[in-house]
């Protein structure tokens, strides 16, 4: 089988945790399929990470210091083609969503998204499980040789790698591109830093109406907590972006995460599942949030919030 290609993403100029997870699994799978691991990184900033990746070989795309989807895709397709890749692993991030489906479709290869486990299959190539229907169902799928796979960050632990022994080969790709970067935009830090709070009162679409946010504010005040939220609450313009927990928001690890009216979509879980204690209140007993919560209840959050605020007030 051709090599396992791992697409390397950086976070603050270091390898992202999700990439470490992909490399870990790739190194475990490669011997079973008598093949090697090739790490693919973009721009000079990736050089050190590639050298320390623990992969057998690495390819560094020159002139790709800033991420431009069209250029990154051209490079990935060239590497897939040149190496007759046996498997391509990407994290299910923005980059993975850009490059995964497109390179699979362009190269005529199967694609599996939202993967949470990946193993060598008996007699075949690989087998995977994927989280579909916002985490309400799991699909077990056969992953044929040559597939492109995007993995949900945090699906399995990453092993530390040591050393800087991976040889890095430079790759030049044509620089003309239909797409151009205009500017990068740094995160809006907002009024509060939700990543520093010990207790988060986090509200989702179950809050139903922006007027009900007052109930969450009062509860947070009584608890000495901070209000955070899921993405739809931000998209509706009810709370600022700095309050958003999840894949496209902040990653939080408070002592207590109170998830109120949040269903627990994979994109939300990604940002809070390592909280010390998670309490979820959701009227739907089948909501996936209960898979990660330590304590749960199915009562109405609009009833619970004022009651709890009152109790906290009484207790003083």
């Amino acid at each position: 089988m051709g090599p396992i290609i791992v697409v390397v993403e950086l976070q603050n100029d270091a390898m992202s945790p999700a990439t470490g997870e992909l490399l870990t699994r790739a190194r475990q799978l490669a011997p079973a399929r008598s093949t090697r691991v090739v790490a693919l990184g973009f721009g000079e900033a990736a050089r050190a990470s590639l050298a320390a990746s623990g992969a057998d070989d690495a390819v560094l795309v020159l002139g790709a210091d800033a991420y431009v989807p069209t250029r990154a895709e051209a490079a990935l397709r060239q590497v897939m083609h040149d190496t007759s890749a046996g498997l391509v692993l990407l994290a299910n991030t923005t980059m993975g969503m850009d490059l995964g489906a497109a390179s699979a479709a362009a190269e005529g290869r199967p694609m599996v998204a939202y993967v949470t486990s990946l193993a060598a299959a008996e007699g075949g190539a690989f087998t995977a499980t994927s989280q579909v229907y916002a985490g309400k169902l799991v699909a077990e799928v056969a992953v044929p040789e040559g597939s492109v796979v995007t993995v949900l960050p945090g699906s399995w632990p990453a092993e530390e790698t040591v050393g800087s022994g991976t040889p890095v080969r430079d790759l030049a790709v044509p620089s003309e591109s239909a797409m151009e970067l205009v500017r990068t935009i740094e995160p809006d830090t907002g009024d509060v830093d939700i990543t520093r709070a010990d207790v988060l009162v986090s509200v989702g679409r179950g809050i139903q109406d922006p007027d009900n946010l007052e109930l969450a504010d009062e509860l947070a005040e009584a608890l000495g907590a901070v209000v955070s939220c899921s993405r739809p609450v931000v998209d509706a313009g009810w709370l600022p972006r700095a309050r958003q927990v999840g894949k496209s928001g902040q990653t939080v690890k408070p002592k207590l995460y109170l998830a109120l009216g949040i269903s627990g979509a994979p994109e939300h879980l990604q940002g809070m599942k390592d909280s010390e204690i998670i309490v979820a209140v959701n009227s739907d007993p089948a909501a996936p949030i209960f898979e990660v919560a330590h304590y749960g209840a199915t009562c109405d959050i609009l009833e619970l919030m004022p009651l709890l605020t009152e109790r906290l007030g009484e207790a003083g």
């Binding site: 431009v68 894949k247 496209s248």
Partner: peptide, 9 residues
């Protein structure tokens, strides 16, 4: 992207 970072193209 993650963490609220964005880019304009």
């Amino acid at each position: 992207y993650a963490g609220g970072r964005m880019a304009e193209f």
